[in-house]
């Protein structure tokens, strides 16, 4: 059962001595990211809520990106995807990513259309 663990994270920036150390290191990183998210959620800095990119507030973009970062480290280090073969990793990651991106694009643009209809047609729904 000699399991090989890849012990380097952040693209070679940090290398741990053994697997346990790596786990605690990743936990520290994930907790930090969560703390930043909650902090931003409570403070809501104005320059982030006032400006938006592609119809979404900058603050929300930060939340989404930080979430994906967390998801990456959970999958790669806790679920050991980092130690699996590239073929397994690709099958597991890209299949859902493709389908989810597709679904979200369709649903959100459709929702946007419905919202426009509510606002521009002669129909009241706030009464």
């Amino acid at each position: 059962m000699a399991h090989e663990h890849k012990l380097t994270i952040f693209r070679g920036l940090v290398t741990f001595k053994n697997n346990q150390q790596k786990i605690w290191g990743v936990l520290l990183f994930l907790s930090l990211v969560t703390a930043v998210e909650v902090g931003l959620g409570i403070v809501k800095p104005e320059f982030l809520t006032k400006s938006s990119l592609l119809g979404t507030k900058l603050l929300n973009w930060i939340f989404i990106i930080l979430t994906l970062v967390k998801a990456y480290y959970i999958a790669w280090d806790f679920m050991h995807l980092r130690d699996e073969r590239a073929s397994l990793r690709r099958v597991v990651v890209w299949t859902p990513v493709f389908l989810i991106v597709y679904l979200i694009t369709l649903l959100l643009s459709e929702a946007n259309y419905v919202y426009e209809m509510f606002n521009t047609t002669f129909m009241t729904w706030d009464f």
Binding site: I100, L103, I104, L107, L108, E110, A111, N112, V114, Y115, F118
Partner: peptide, 9 residues
């Protein structure tokens, strides 16, 4: 995604 749909709506 369904949640996102209703929210955008």
């Amino acid at each position: 995604a369904a949640y996102g749909f209703s929210r955008f709506k």
